[in-house]
Amino acid sequence: MQSVPNVTHPWRDRKRPLWLLALAVPTLPFQAGALVSVTGVGAFWWWGPFFAFVLVPLCDLVTGRDGEANPPEEVMAALEADRYYRWCTYLYLPLQYGALVWACGEWSAGHLSTADGLGLAVTTGVVAGVAINTAHELGHKREQSERRLSRLALAQSCYGHFYVEHNHGHHVRVATPEDPASSRLGEDYYRFLLRSVWGGLRSAWHLERRRLGRRKRPVLSAHNDVLTAWSLSAVLFAVLTLAFGPRVLPYLVLQAVLGFCLLEAVNYLEHYGLLRQRRPDGRYERVAPRHSWNSNNTVSNLLLFQLQRHSDHHANPLRRYQTLRHFDEAPQLPSGYASMILLALFPPLWRRVMDPRLTAHYGGDLSRANLHPRLRHRFTAPETADAAPAEPC
């Protein structure tokens, strides 16, 4: 029998045309309006949460895990340089702001009932929340233009300080008790939300004050990235209120709050209970795949620019989403982010699903986990529990 030659086919991104599906998210308010117009059913103003937390989990269930192999090293440079992938993120912003302006027009017109107006605000809040993820992708890049787009994407949710805290705070302190954006075993989402919002704000201000101090610049100045980010949101809300009237302001505030609450829900599940251990010198070990919960569901990955491949992002923060790799050794969530966010809203269900997984990850030794303070005495020796935290690496 004649032997068949072993032909190696070059790697290619089979999902390449599908990345444009991510642009379905910023058009959710338009989709809601179209569905209401066609059907006459006002409930479709709530299309955003239905899309995010019903349709996406169902699609994840049907399509399953992403079975495509990680891109090999020899294609990384070309894949990073392919500008098609950048435009998939760039285009989110005009659609995001087009939808926001259109929503303001609907709120100001006076034909929506209170329930319908709230539904449109919640749908717009889903756009704002996922826009923070788009800002996250853009904000890690070296190009100044992308960093500016990142800040613009954050203005809708009034969460511009995330740009400072995430890059210079969270990535340094991730999976440690000192990080406000790393949730702890035994900490429910609602307690975490308060701690992370307030802690992130304080941290961003401290980091920016320290940066400006090193450069001998005043804190209260145009050089302060936190102040300029908040100013951008204030200008945006002021312009929209002047253009459409004060009727839109409560809806703008509501969608902003929902947007950053959605972001914090993602923060909650990404590092739940995971802890970097101390080295002999007292500093924390380097970030590894075992310090982030991952999910490799196909549809969620497409819609979130592979945020769910979170371990590789922490190992390589500058790496673009199309080159992020899946690690089998990273702890795995049982489902995609959308399903897990819903689970996080019900703390008893969350703990029933996630605490056994965390326990298994640490081989039953929960003294190695990032514990809520009220649980530390159960699993940690007193001298360890009372030790002063060392500086994170």
Rank of each mutant, 00 (worst) to 15 (best):
R16I: 05
R210F: 05
A135L: 07
G245Q: 08
N267E: 01
E137F: 05
G259N: 10
V126F: 07
L58V: 15
T124I: 11
R16G: 00
G64Y: 07
E391N: 11
R184M: 13
A369E: 03
L269A: 09
A78M: 03
R211F: 04
A388Q: 11
E270I: 12
F305L: 13
G169R: 08
A78N: 08
G186M: 06
V287T: 14
P392Q: 07
V56K: 00
S233E: 03
G110Y: 09
Q96C: 09
V126S: 05
L61Q: 07
T63D: 00
V122S: 00
D188G: 13
S231I: 14
R320K: 14
L154Q: 11
L152Q: 11
S108A: 15
A77F: 02
E187V: 03
V25D: 02
A181K: 01
L212T: 13
T380Y: 00
S339Q: 08
L118T: 15
D386M: 09
L35F: 11
A181N: 08
T241Y: 02
E270F: 06
E391Y: 05
R65W: 06
H361M: 03
W107K: 10
M340P: 07
S367C: 00
W87V: 13
M76W: 04
D312N: 07
Y92N: 06
A360P: 00
L61R: 09
F162T: 02
R286C: 01
T298Y: 10
H168Y: 14
L55F: 09
S203H: 04
L254M: 15
H161K: 02
N70M: 10
V36I: 09
L58A: 14
D312I: 05
S157T: 15
V75N: 02
L269W: 01
T359C: 10
R147D: 02
L345V: 13
Q332P: 05
Q306I: 03
S182V: 00
R12P: 01
M354H: 01
A81K: 13
S367L: 03
Q277T: 09
G129V: 14
Q96D: 05
R211V: 12
N70S: 10
A22W: 02
Y84N: 04
P250N: 11
K141M: 05
H166S: 02
L232F: 12
P180W: 07
V56C: 01
L274H: 01
E165Q: 15
A69C: 06
A381G: 02
Y268H: 04
